[in-house]
Design a protein around this nucleic acid. Structure first.
Lengths: 177, 177
DNA sequence: ATATATTCGGGACAAATGTCCTTTTTTTAG
DNA sequence: CTAAAAAAAGGACATTTGTCCCGAATATAT
C-alpha cells in the first residue's frame, strides 16, 4: 500500500507531514481536511465522550490509513488521532483520494480488506469487553502489547479497556495472584 | 443495491432462499458457504462468548448484506445470524461474489460505504456502552427501536446492551422515575 | 542533600451490575 | 376456558467497578 502511494508522489496531491509526540492529527468533531497514510510512528485513535471520559479504539501504526471513513461518509472526525511517538504521514487531498476511489480497483480491494479487518476487531472487542470482566480483557491487551511494541501509560491502558485506573490496578493485582 | 442483483439473476450464481423465524442463516465459527443479501425480513447478528453470554452486534434488514466480511477475510463466521422474522435472501456463490468484487467498481464503492457506516456504528457504540451507564445506552436503544420497527424481547434488548435482564429492568425503572 | 512537586498505588466507602430465585403476568396448547 | 409453559418483574445478597482521597515512591529543583 505504501508503495502504491510513494510511486504516485511528486504531484501536490500528496505531501509528507510531521507530527511531534503528543500532537493531534485529527480532532474529534472537526472537519478533516486530508486523508492520511502513516509512514512512521504510532498513533492512538480515541473518543472523548460528553462526560469527559476517553475510550481508545485502536492503535494505528506504519502503513495504516486514517481519515478515510470520514471522507467516504462525508462526516466530521469520528474521534481524535494523536501521535504517541513522533509521526510522519503522507497527507492526501480529498479530491485526489476521491479520484483514486472512483477509479482504482486495486485500492478499493485493499480498503475493503482493511475495513473488514477493523470491523472484526472492533466488533469482537466490543462483545468481549461487555461480556467479560476487566481481568480477562486486560489479558488480551497484554498480548496485543507484546505483539506490537507499544509503550503505553496506565492511563492509556485504562482508556483502552474503558475503565478507571483504579480498576485497572485491581485487575493487575488479581492477575498476579 | 438490490436492483444491481435482481438484474443479474437467472444464472445459478444467485438463488433465493427462505428462512423461518428463529432459523439461523450463519453459525458462528462454521464456514460460510454463501454471501447473502437480505430481500425481506429482519435478522439479528450476535456473538456467543465462551461463557455462554450473548452480545447482539446489530440488526440487519432489507437491503443489507451478510457474510461478505467472512468472504473477504477468508475466515469462519464471526457471529451468528438468526432470523427474527421470516426472512428471504439472495444467496450468492463465493466464486461469483469474488468476481464481482474484482471487477465491479460500483459494487466496491457501495461496499466501502456500507463498511464505513458499520465501523462508525460499532465503534461509537463500543465507546458509549463502556463509558456510560446502562440507563444512557438504553435511551439510545429505544431511539433506534422506534426508528426501525423492530419488535424485540427483553432478552434481546439486554444482549444488545451487553447486560443482564435484571439490570435492564432496573434501568427501565429508573428511566420512568 | 533537602525540600517541593508529581506520579502511583491502594484503602474506604458508594454506586452499579450480576446471580439466584420467587412471584406475577402473559402466551400457548388442548 | 383451563392447564401448562414462557416471559417478565423484582427482592435479597454478592461481586465488580467507580469515586474520593491519602500516604508512599519517584522525580525535579535549589
Amino acid at each position: 500500500m505504501q508503495e502504491l502511494y510513494e510511486q504516485q508522489e511528486r504531484k501536490e496531491n500528496i505531501i509528507v507531514k510531521q507530527y511531534a509526540k503528543g500532537q493531534k492529527l485529527f480532532f474529534q468533531n472537526e472537519k478533516a481536511t486530508k486523508v492520511m497514510l502513516i509512514k512512521e510512528g504510532i498513533t492512538k485513535c480515541f473518543f472523548t465522550e460528553d462526560n469527559d471520559k476517553e475510550y481508545i479504539l485502536e492503535f494505528l501504526g506504519k502503513g495504516e490509513i486514517v481519515g478515510e471513513i470520514e471522507f467516504i461518509r462525508k462526516i466530521v472526525c469520528l474521534c481524535n488521532i494523536e501521535a504517541m511517538t513522533d509521526v510522519t504521514v503522507y497527507a492526501i487531498t480529498p479530491d485526489y483520494f476521491g479520484e483514486l476511489i472512483k477509479n482504482d480497483l486495486k485500492l478499493n480491494n485493499l480498503l475493503l480488506d482493511v475495513f473488514a479487518e477493523r470491523i472484526i476487531n472492533t466488533a469482537s472487542r466490543a462483545s468481549y469487553q461487555q461480556l467479560y470482566t476487566i481481568e480477562h480483557s486486560l489479558g488480551k491487551l497484554l498480548e496485543l502489547q507484546s505483539k506490537q511494541e507499544i509503550a503505553m501509560s496506565k492511563e492509556d491502558m485504562a482508556s483502552y479497556l474503558g475503565v478507571t485506573v483504579r480498576s485497572l490496578n485491581r485487575a493487575f493485582k488479581s492477575l498476579s495472584e
